Simulated scan of single mutants.
Amino acid sequence: MSALLKLTGVETYIGRYHILQGVDFEVPEGQTTMLLGRNGAGKTTTLRTIMGLWQAKNGTIALAGEPIEKLATPDIAQRGVGYVPESMAVFSDLTVKENLVLAARNGPLDDAQLAWIFGFFPALKKFWLSRAGSLSGGQKQMLSIARAIVEPRKLLLIDEPTKGLAPAIVMSLIECLKEIKRRGATILLVEQNSHAARELGDQVLVMDNGSIVHRGEMAALAADVPLQERLLGLSLEAHQ
């Protein structure tokens, strides 16, 4: 299967700290690749570097064979890359509607796409004209994800979307991400929830100290508790 995204020798510094230390991996087109690792391993830095929010000092990042490591974040987004940060970045002073209008870079909101999003996240329809800052944490996460998928994306970079969410919302989110993949999107997903990782992951990458230390099938890692404990310090179940 061809790689939609490929990182080769990527190194990223934040101030004097050498965070990514030669990251190499591929994300197969049409699949969901999990990016796992202990806290501080470099997972969020990897997503932010791909998105151009932090610049790689060395190495290459290719999207569909084209280098993007020197591009600005808006130009990367224009190439069909969506990003859902862990911080649930929404515009608090704007309404839910206004947040989504801003995210629809290529024209007016599509009614069919909105109806599809509301099917998974009905709270967004209920609070359509409410300020985003008044939403609960779970509702803000729904809005953050909706912003990333309000238009079709080639690649979605998603950072711990289930963190702090109620189980019912987590299940809706899992079904939403499955449907996004069925519609043809490729997903690179940082996630600590073991159920979400098992349900969503096709491939898995494990980071430690700023580099990739394991790559393989998610199902194989999920079945190997000793390997999980060696790579992650704990079993996947303990990360719930």
Score class of each variant (00 low, 15 high):
G216E: 13
G22R: 04
R48K: 14
L63H: 06
A223T: 00
L129G: 14
V84K: 01
L135E: 08
V150M: 08
Q55W: 05
A132G: 13
V90D: 07
G137T: 09
E29T: 12
T8G: 01
L129W: 15
L143R: 09
N209E: 14
D75T: 11
K178S: 01
A219R: 15
K125Q: 15
S2G: 00
P226I: 12
R16C: 00
E69R: 07
I14K: 13
L165V: 13
L47D: 06
E191D: 03
K57P: 00
M171D: 15
K97I: 00
N209W: 12
V23R: 08
S92N: 13
I145V: 14
E217R: 15
A112S: 13
T45N: 04
L5P: 07
S136A: 06
L94M: 14
L71S: 05
G59K: 11
A166V: 04
L36M: 14
D159Q: 05
M34Y: 02
K140R: 15
D110P: 06
V190K: 00
L189T: 03
K178L: 09
L231W: 02
E229I: 04
Y13C: 08
S235N: 13
E229C: 07
E199Q: 13
S92C: 01
A168C: 00
Q141V: 06
M1R: 15
N58R: 15
I158C: 03
P167S: 04
E66P: 00
P108C: 11
R131W: 01
K140S: 08
E179H: 13
I50R: 06
G30V: 10
A41W: 08
L221N: 08
L156P: 04
V27I: 15
I149D: 01
S136H: 12
S92Y: 10
G216A: 12
A223G: 11
L53F: 10
R48S: 10
H18F: 10
F118M: 12
L177T: 02
Q113W: 00
G184Q: 07
A3S: 15
F127E: 11
A72I: 02
R183F: 02
D159Y: 05
D202I: 02
P226E: 14
L100Q: 15
G138R: 12
D159L: 05
L155M: 07
G15A: 10
T46G: 09
T12Y: 03
D75W: 06
G137N: 10
